[in-house]
Amino acid sequence: MFIRVQLPWNVIIPAENLDVEGLMLKKSIVNRLLDEFAGKKATKDFGYFLAITTLDNIGEGKVRPQTGDVLFPVVFSAVTFKIFRGEVIQGVVQKVLKHGVFLSCGPLENAYLSNTKMPDYNYVTGENPVFLSEKQSKIEKETVVRVMVIGTKWLEAERQFQALVSLEGDYLGPL
């Protein structure tokens, strides 16, 4: 689910970037914030960081004694993407393996659909392996599949999420 959140952040402006002109300073703060935001990628609590929509407040700068850099506490609004257990999402099949398929869903790259969670489907090997159901419904690379999230996991080192998804339920499956 995409969410609008408001977040506090500390922006540090190196002493050499400080300028007597207030306008330039604001531009430095905004640029620094945009760079850091894009580099952050995701957090466990808020999910993937997509884009800053508004800069809501820039607090008073505090000079850091050792370096002369200035720290500005800012508050901004942003759009993030987080998955929840029990949520129904649409994913796109990226990889078909014998024991299941990997789907992507926006910034989420690893949603795993195990063959145990799609009991009606059988693996068919070949150059382009597929999962086929008795009703001839097919899951292959690039297929859009509607799935339910049954588990999520935050990977701190990679700063990303993994999800386990399932086809067990009404109105789930390839579209």
Partner: peptide, 18 residues
Amino acid sequence: TNQISQVFEKSLQYVKRF
């Protein structure tokens, strides 16, 4: 290019499609 992250690009692709 600095400020358009992979997360941004993938999300944009996804929401345009869906």
